[in-house]
């Protein structure tokens, strides 16, 4: 990392740490900050498999939901402390990732077929969560409110903000490591040309299973955090297609396969949300503004895939010389 990049990252981190104080800790600002960081974190989990390794998934909610349900079941039904249940949930996400990866990549599924099979896995998990007794089916699971740091529940939302900030920074560090490490280089080779990567002696199957497990672990960590913040999950929240699409959008809009892409995408996403909400408040004719934001994202997605395959990060990158091997065609 160059000095300027280091300074910029340090400055960004300090700004993010001071952000809640700037707004006097107003709940609105803090919650908005949480949503951006949380979406960026989930988007980064998608980006690690979908961007860096080119294994695009339409069903990442399968990991999010696994994490949310694993910790909530351990906590609510078995009395575990959520801090202890969290690593188990992360391991469960990794296991589901490794399982889906092993099955799909063993069968040679690539590209669109891999995307579609992940969608089907998420749907299968949603239906199972709706049907089996230990998830309480469609009723969902309620976590008893008992705000105390030892319970991974906080009265002041500022602590969830900082928790999301820590996770987000860790995920950024992981993404940065992927641009530097041999593992990351192998993933880039797989993304650019899988057959060539295999011809170079890369065990593409093993690397792809690994990256999906890593991505699943990260996403599951987000699932637990979601459950602990909102104290309620149900099969549609946890495994619904909307969650999968949101992770994909955040990453694609910001720039798949870039370190800061998901963070930028999450910022854009929530900026558009706020603007449409304001619009909805200003114009009484607009009854529900939420869909407007999603319409905008859908259009942005089409434009980005059609014209800017590097995402909005590509706008910046194209001005400089393209570093070898990082281009995305």
């Amino acid at each position: 990392m160059s000095r300027t990049a280091l300074l910029a990252c340090g400055g960004g981190l300090i700004a993010a740490a001071l952000y809640p104080l700037l707004f006097g800790g107003s709940n609105y600002a803090v919650n908005l900050g949480f949503l951006v960081l949380f979406a960026a974190f989930l988007g980064q989990s998608w980006n690690i498999a979908g961007g860096f390794a080119g294994q695009m998934s339409f069903g990442h909610a399968v990991f999010f939901g696994t994490g949310a349900y694993a910790s909530t079941i351990l906590h609510v039904s078995h009395g575990w402390n959520p801090w202890l249940a969290w690593p188990v949930a992360i391991a469960a996400g990794a296991a589901v990732g490794a399982g889906i990866g092993t099955l799909s990549f063993r069968a040679g599924l690539r590209g669109s077929y891999f995307a579609l099979v992940t969608l089907a896995f998420a749907e299968a998990f949603r239906i199972l969560a709706n049907s089996v007794p230990f998830t309480r089916g469609g009723l969902g699971m309620l976590i008893k409110s008992d705000p105390h740091p030892a319970n991974l529940q906080f009265r002041d939302p500022i602590w969830f903000y900082y928790l999301a900030l820590v996770l987000c920074v860790l995920s950024l560090a992981l993404a940065w490591w992927l641009t530097r490490s041999r593992f990351g280089a192998r993933l880039a080779a797989i993304r650019e040309n899988e057959d060539a990567a295999r011809a170079l002696g890369i065990n593409t199957f093993r690397e792809k299973v690994r990256v999906l497990a890593l991505s699943g672990a990260l996403c599951a960590a987000g699932g637990t955090l979601y459950a602990q913040k909102y104290l309620y999950i149900d099969p549609s929240i946890a495994f619904g297609v909307d969650k999968s699409i949101e992770m994909l959008l955040v990453s694609m809009i910001g720039g798949a396969g870039t370190i800061f892409g998901p963070l930028i995408g999450a910022g854009v996403l929530h900026f558009v949300s706020e603007v449409t909400r304001e619009l909805g408040g200003a114009l009484p004719a607009i009854k529900n503004a939420q869909p407007l934001a999603l319409i905008v994202y859908g259009v942005i997605l089409v434009i980005i895939v059609g014209y800017l395959p590097d995402g909005s990060m590509g706008l910046f990158r194209r001005r400089r010389a393209l570093p070898q091997g990082q281009g995305h065609a």
Partner: peptide, 14 residues
């Protein structure tokens, strides 16, 4: 082909 899938996904979101 993933790009085409993403374009049609974008259309479905819209």
């Amino acid at each position: 082909d993933e790009n085409i899938l993403l374009i049609t996904l974008g259309l479905s979101i819209v």
